[in-house]
Nucleic acid binder design. Structure first.
Lengths: 342, 342
DNA sequence: CTGAAAGCGCTTACAG
DNA sequence: CTGAAAGCGCTTACAG
């Protein structure tokens, strides 16, 4: 069962291919009678334009690509869902690629997408990424690009972000408001903007509330894993006996820390309070439930696609391209890993 | 910066487009000298074949589509990861679409993919899907199709599955082996094969061990949510005072049930033992940790792509197409929501 | 060893 | 209102 082509319809009706094509696309210069005839025949033969030919002619594939560090991840899969939902509304399909937090892979994935001639790229950067040459190449090829969540501040393109610094400030302030005096921070790797910003928000909250910043209370996570939460919690307990609160870069790590505190029978939140970041589903079902910052993944995905779509249209119509940055609100979700505000 | 084309290289070197094309593809009938010249020029100009043109000529897009019920889902995102990893090895890109467990949407997504002329489709069926017309259409169009996890037994194509019945049998038997006498089951919706099979495995384990099957101990879940776990646990406690074990179709639901048992201070596993299914990450971090069946999502994805790739090749080479069914092993992960075997 | 030609299936500017 | 023609960028069977 080979798909129907324009020329088959043309032959059947004894008219030219051009007329068939124009009739189907409702060109004004085709007679009503012909249009009707063509459309009926097309419907009976279940005609569908050959996507390959259309792509080649229009130089559009109605397909976009998304590159994220990791698919198996509550936040990123929510983003994907938002992107797919919004893309579908506009008739776009979505190709997904993973960077595994590797700069080299990220670069390769960009090449793959450019070679495929996708209509646009959505990206959340790998932790390793410090050089942005590959992103500039995307822009040099005039392929629309939108960054979300893990962005490069210096690259000039549309972005969808949250205010990591303010959110981290709020998280840390919550610890202070609930009586914590000595607050540690499990931070992310050195490079990504969001781990820098969360660290800065933490630091600012301390100084704003006259709590001295102590660099020995900063613990690094390299791959943001459960296991690192366990290990850092262990170290923290070994190093410091007086810490009564900890703000952790990501829920998964926080859940690891909580499991270690539980194992050592450290009472949460009485002896130590914990605040995470991202509001992974599991945070609402562990014991104690985790106070965290809600990060709107689904909305982020939707908005990222919207910005990309706008840029695709602007380029097509040869309009000036105006980059836009959308900042989505976050909110503190108070649960039982922190005390009540007095 | 417009991409380089064959004709540009041809013009530059004063040779024909055909020769350039053949040189780049190492046709034996092109002189070494010409090949070298062409390849060097291509490299300098950063020539990449235009994917749209190649697609149109070769009638291949080197892109496959995958349709799953839900992206934000630990098991399915693992499968996606496996598919993407394997596809990348073979130079294929992956388009992801969601059915949201809806038959209508699933059908629409199939149409979208067929219209795009992807090279193959990987699908895990929606719960609602009882009619397979859309799948037959895929096959009628000679598009390779592989089903995984939630399959239609009656549709003749390659499949990657686990043995849900045996796995459920093992889960239930574990409850029996650890001393449970009256075992409930939270099952999935009526249609999908996996919820039928898991139910049958549960039932068989009971009868094999001389425990009478009691239909009042079966509770339905329609959307496999945390909330349904809570509600069913409530009902179970209201309806029956003597139940000492429950086998639950999916971890997420089991986690909901556990949270309700905890809330009502029912001791797990002393008063009631719980076994889940799928081994979601969170099952290892809740309290108590959940005994469950590990379902190899990543491997499933890898194997599904492998079968699809094989079929793509077979069709291309006009070989006979042999459908294959791969059954992946599962295993019981013993944790603290069940007692120890005496 | 090289190149002219046909063709994949469509779109669109142009002529009539 | 209709159609011939050019062209998107490639591949490949065929001629020389």
């Amino acid at each position: 069962m080979k798909p129907t082509t324009l020329s088959q319809i043309a032959e059947l009706l004894n008219i030219s291919i051009s007329t068939v094509s124009k009739a189907l696309k409702d060109y004004p210069d085709v007679s009503k009678r012909t249009k009707l005839l063509v459309k009926e025949t097309a419907a009976t033969l279940n005609y569908k334009p050959n996507a390959f030919a259309v792509n080649l002619r229009t130089k559009e594939s109605k397909t976009i690509g998304i590159i994220i560090p990791e698919v198996v991840h509550h936040f990123f899969s929510s983003v994907i869902k938002g992107i797919i939902a919004q893309a579908e509304k506009k008739g776009y399909l979505v190709i997904i690629l993973q960077s595994n937090e590797s700069y080299k892979l990220e670069k390769k994935q960009i090449e793959l997408l450019l070679d495929k001639h996708i209509d646009g790229i959505l990206i959340s950067l790998a932790n390793e990424t410090a050089d942005f040459q590959h992103l500039y190449e995307v822009m040099a090829r005039e392929t629309p690009l939108v960054m979300f969540d893990k962005i490069a501040k210096l690259v000039n393109c549309s972005k969808v972000i949250i205010n990591d610094r303010n959110a981290a400030y709020e998280a840390t302030k919550h610890l202070i408001d609930t009586g914590c005096k000595r607050i540690a921070h499990f931070r992310g790797p050195l490079l990504p903007q969001n781990s820098i910003d969360r660290f800065l928000g933490y630091k600012k909250a301390l100084t704003d509330h006259n709590i001295p910043y102590d660099s020995s209370l900063i613990y690094f996570c390299n791959n943001m894993s459960f296991e690192e939460g366990v290990q850092n919690a262990k170290k923290l307990l070994d190093d410091h006996t007086d810490v009564d609160g900890v703000f952790i870069n990501t829920d998964l790590v926080a859940v690891g820390a909580i499991s270690e505190f539980n194992r050592q029978n450290i009472k949460i939140p009485e002896e130590i309070s914990v605040v995470g970041f991202s509001n992974w589903f599991m945070s609402s079902v562990i014991s104690p439930t985790l106070t965290t910052i809600d990060q709107p993944g689904y909305l982020m995905g939707k908005n990222a696609f919207k910005l990309l779509y706008k840029e695709i249209r602007q380029r097509k119509e040869n309009n000036i391209i105006i980059f836009k940055q959308i900042e989505l609100p976050t909110k503190l979700i108070k649960r039982s890993s922190t005390r009540d505000i007095i």
